[in-house]
Design a protein around this nucleic acid. Sequence first.
DNA 1: TTCCACAGTTTGATATGCAAACCTAGACGG
DNA 2: CCGTCTAGGTTTGCATATCAAACTGTGGAA
Lengths: 160, 160
Amino acid sequence: MSPAPLDVPAVAGRPCSVAAALEIIGDRWSLLIVREVLFGNHRFGEIARNTGAPRDRLAARLKELVAAGVLEQREYQASPPRSDYHLTKAGRDLGTVLQVLREWGDRWAVESPPVSVRHHDHELKIGGVCSVCGEPVRARDLTREMHVPDWDMAGPRAAD
Amino acid sequence: MSPAPLDVPAVAGRPCSVAAALEIIGDRWSLLIVREVLFGNHRFGEIARNTGAPRDRLAARLKELVAAGVLEQREYQASPPRSDYHLTKAGRDLGTVLQVLREWGDRWAVESPPVSVRHHDHELKIGGVCSVCGEPVRARDLTREMHVPDWDMAGPRAAD
DNA sequence: TTCCACAGTTTGATATGCAAACCTAGACGG
DNA sequence: CCGTCTAGGTTTGCATATCAAACTGTGGAA
């Protein structure tokens, strides 16, 4: 798969993959939709019920996620035409995003975790460790750099 | 810090830490605000310029993030009253969320990464590995479970 | 005494979000 | 044959949120 097959809308503010990602999946319902599909709920009605999204918004969002390459729409019967939704590779990759959001929510937004994700015999945990070197990530070991001429970490460089 | 010091709004749909987290930081600007503060840009004007958020929305969001316990507002001069914004522990923990979103965006939403985050001598990468056992996370090694009586992975159990 | 910096607030037009009702096409039951 | 149910959306009418731009208030610098 090519580097960036997804739609890349222009973003205001700092050029940043986080902002670009949020342009695609940063609205109120997208990640909940992906969560449900990841849970095995592929049909419009299931997704509507389990996310709580209004049906019109859901229909609109599903179209956009399909257009963006996160979901794939499959016709599971021809007449009357009925389709369900499946994750693409890009959609499956959002599992990581959902997991760290879950970890943050478990810690900070909820009394006790309503959903658990188990990996082999233990609770899955993704955050906190660099998967390249295996060491815990501490803020002081990190450095950040911008690779765009007009911006540095403080903001836009040239006079706009 | 106690288990859930943050405001916990009631959510429609499946009870889920992801949804709870998104209730707090799931709007259009919150994560970009946190990104900027994490980058060391603490002032209202800097955040407004670097995120592209309208000033009124930004002011409203900052208030909500302070109320939710993600940011802390500090007066850095008394007259005229001027404050800036700093991350709480909960806010700092969002660094992981930003990082996996960046990794997803680098891969799927952007031609080439505009921002790089380096950990010691290599590019930071968080996704893909379970930090408990160190093994790569594959979908088939995961099982999910709901701990709420009225819901299972398919949806609500009782007749609502 | 005039301009600028800075953190917001106000304003008025526009876009978006929502719940509920509706549509279409077939399947199922009597 | 007739009514009802399932299912994936679409339409409608209204309420709310969002936006860009202008404005406010306070102090410091020229």
